[in-house]
Design a protein around this nucleic acid. Structure first.
Lengths: 212, 212
DNA sequence: TTGCATCCTGACCGTATGGTCAGCTTTCAG
DNA sequence: CTGAAAGCTGACCATACGGTCAGGATGCAA
């Protein structure tokens, strides 16, 4: 089976194990929350003995912190879509696409992030007060300029951002509810596309930035 | 201090203690999640010895279930706003107002609900498959009729509902993030009003149901 | 007043969990 | 080839947690 040659250099071992642990941890933290997650469960899912987890991540908190920071990185990457854009139609469309893709591809990460924020961001508080705040202020500036330039209606930029975050993140965090209401089946490719289109259309129309 | 006459009839005792416990539990479950919450913490917050909690609620699961069901009741009540409405402007406006009021007045409840759904709705699964599904199907019907009658653009009713849930719930679940971005202060009356107005305006405009 | 049901609680218990550690195996530079 | 560093792990520990229970206090109907 997987008993092919396994020389494996030290570096590779470290990288692969950390990756496996982080992936397992993300899933378990997402499903059970920080308090409900156990190192044993994560270890089992990662296919490693529990003691080995503590070799790579000294404490549960440290492991959790790594998971959360990973998500934050992904989150920030998607945020760049805004910058390259010439106007609200391009920028917001791209941002919605990117965030919906995250909701679809990294639902566990999204849930961990949501959980972290809901519990008062014990780990990410400093990031939120620095990186997130700066990013937000920057985008508020961009949106304000679009408004000044008459490219969209005068909508409060912050509430618009919250709306974008909320609507896109919802498909990950409340994915179970959506699935249940979808007859117990996860959304198809087509349904995901429709979701994106609907969100884009309603919001872009709603802020007076006609898509066509 | 509170050592005024305390005859307290049995009925009252029971009612008041259950109320205090449920309130404390809601807060602790919201802040720490099910797994992170401890009966001791809830007991302390409710001002009762831990053993007394188990007199009223046999297990942690039972207490949690009660909390979650309470939220669901409130949630369903707000849902009625839809029925009395003549068209999308009235209906959706009222619904947004109601749900934003819940986010503001019961943030803990909202968080517990979100947490429950995020973790796969272990307690509420049956409710979601019956009550919630029925409610949703009903509202989908109403919205579809509005579309047929030309009162709004042809937007997928389900995705519209998700959008309403997402945007309003966001102000509770991600309240901490919003506060942080608001300079660490909770939203003022005015800001809450602006939030509501923004959401209503964008969505109602976005679906082609002009507010004026 | 009496008897009983309800209410209350300190002390206790079994278990699960995060974390430790001594000692093993494997990689790899020199 | 060799030794040291990195990687690995079964067995173990202390603690915290959910839950129990015997027995005391209190409201209340008769």
């Amino acid at each position: 089976m997987s008993e092919t040659t396994r020389p494996m250099r030290r570096q590779d071992i470290r990288r692969e194990n950390e990756k496996a642990i982080l992936l397992a941890a993300e899933k378990v933290f997402a499903e059970a929350g920080f308090g409900g997650a156990t190192m044993q469960l994560i270890a089992d899912l990662a296919g490693l003995p529990k003691a080995n987890l503590h070799y790579y991540f000294a404490t549960k908190e440290e492991l959790y912190r790594s998971v959360v920071q990973n998500i934050f990185e992904i989150w920030l990457q998607a945020a760049n879509c805004f910058d390259a854009a010439r106007g609200p139609v391009d920028g917001i469309s791209a941002y919605i696409d990117a965030k919906m893709e995250i909701s679809r591809r990294h639902p566990d990460g999204s849930k961990v992030w949501a959980s972290e924020v809901m519990h008062g961001a014990p780990v990410l508080q400093d990031y939120m007060e620095s990186t997130l705040r700066e990013w937000t202020d920057g985008r508020v500036g961009i949106i304000s300029r679009w408004i000044e330039e008459g490219k969209m209606d005068p909508v409060d930029p912050r509430h618009l951002l919250y709306m974008l975050w909320a609507t896109t993140q919802h498909y990950a965090d409340f994915g179970h509810q959506i699935e249940t209401l979808n007859g117990g089946k996860s959304l198809s490719d087509r349904q995901w596309r429709e979701a994106k289109e609907n969100i884009k259309r309603v919001i872009l129309t709603g802020i007076g930035a006609q898509p066509a």
